[in-house]
Design a protein around this nucleic acid. Structure first.
Ligand SMILES: [Mn+2]
Ligand SMILES: [Mn+2]
Ligand SMILES: [Zn+2]
Ligand SMILES: [Zn+2]
Lengths: 154, 154
DNA sequence: ATCATTATTTGGACATAGTCCAAAATTGTG
DNA sequence: CACAATTTTGGACTATGTCCAAATAATGAT
């Protein structure tokens, strides 16, 4: 009924547990975190939590619409608590950092397919690939030798 | 030098092997195929091919720009030979079928991010999610009970 | 507060997709 | 044909995630 984390869980029919509260806090603190990274963080906060519980919690949060899962190529799934706005993502090919981008047309689905092939489209998922500021060649200055982890496509 | 499959491989510095020719033909015949499915098809054509060789060939083809890899959520990587046009994809949440969609603005990157966060963007990857014609509720008629394999997001 | 019921958590096994590696086979070259 | 370089093979291994049944914890009703 209130808007505390506890109330948020209860209002979605979920019982309140230390594990869920911790995972929920974790994806708020660290948007675009992997399940295993979230487990690490959660363990620092509450001492122990099973891997399965982290996965269960994340899956439940996604089901209930309290979290969103994205899955950039060559990355394990990433979780965030920013939901409902169908925002998009910028991914750095070199360091893998993920940044949010507002949906340019505001609402989901935000894009018309040039031909919808008679599909009923409910979502347009957009991933922008490129180089983040830190990973960009620094023109004249001595350039840090980056080993790209994700190669640009043809 | 010519435009046979053999010439295509040679012109990219690759030696010509039965395995490569077969995998190349396979992704032409079956766009959006998985590595394991491609292995199955290839085996029917030439009797035997190792799983590793299929993966190696597909990776090499992608590196050389002769194939493209896409990775819809909850799916293994899919390969196709349609390259260089940065086209997009429609994915059915129910049956998983993947269809091509032309890039609406013609050239890559085809979309401006609303804020590029100072990234240098080289590609905009778009995946449209929805229901294919076969998986859509058939209004009045008796409706096949579909068990969606991929749930719609909040 | 205590109990009973239900939901959650745990750890271990299992599944899938993919890579690493060294030996064997094949390809391209002279 | 023979040699060197490349590719293929099969088996082990890794990473990410799910399945399962037993143990534990949370909720609702006395
Ligand atoms: Mn985000
Ligand atoms: Mn395609
Ligand atoms: Zn970067
Ligand atoms: Zn379908």
């Amino acid at each position: 009924m209130d808007n505390s984390p506890e109330g948020l869980l209860r209002s979605h029919g979920l019982s309140v547990t230390a594990q869920r509260l911790t995972v929920l806090q974790t994806i708020t603190d660290y948007p675009h975190i992997t399940a295993d990274q979230a487990a690490e963080v959660a363990r620092k906060k509450i001492g122990a939590i099973s891997r399965q519980s982290v996965y269960d919690t994340l899956n439940t949060l996604v089901e209930k619409g309290l979290a969103r899962r994205i899955q950039p190529m060559d990355s394990p799934a990433l979780f965030e608590d920013r939901v409902g706005d169908n925002h998009h993502h910028l991914v750095c090919r070199s360091c893998g950092i993920v940044e949010d981008v507002d949906c340019s047309t505001g609402y989901r689905p935000c894009l018309q397919a040039s031909d919808d092939n008679n599909f009923i489209i409910d979502e347009a998922e957009v991933t922008y690939w490129g180089l983040c500021p830190k990973c960009q060649p620094k023109s004249t200055k001595s350039q840090a030798k980056q080993t790209p982890t994700r190669k640009a496509k043809s």
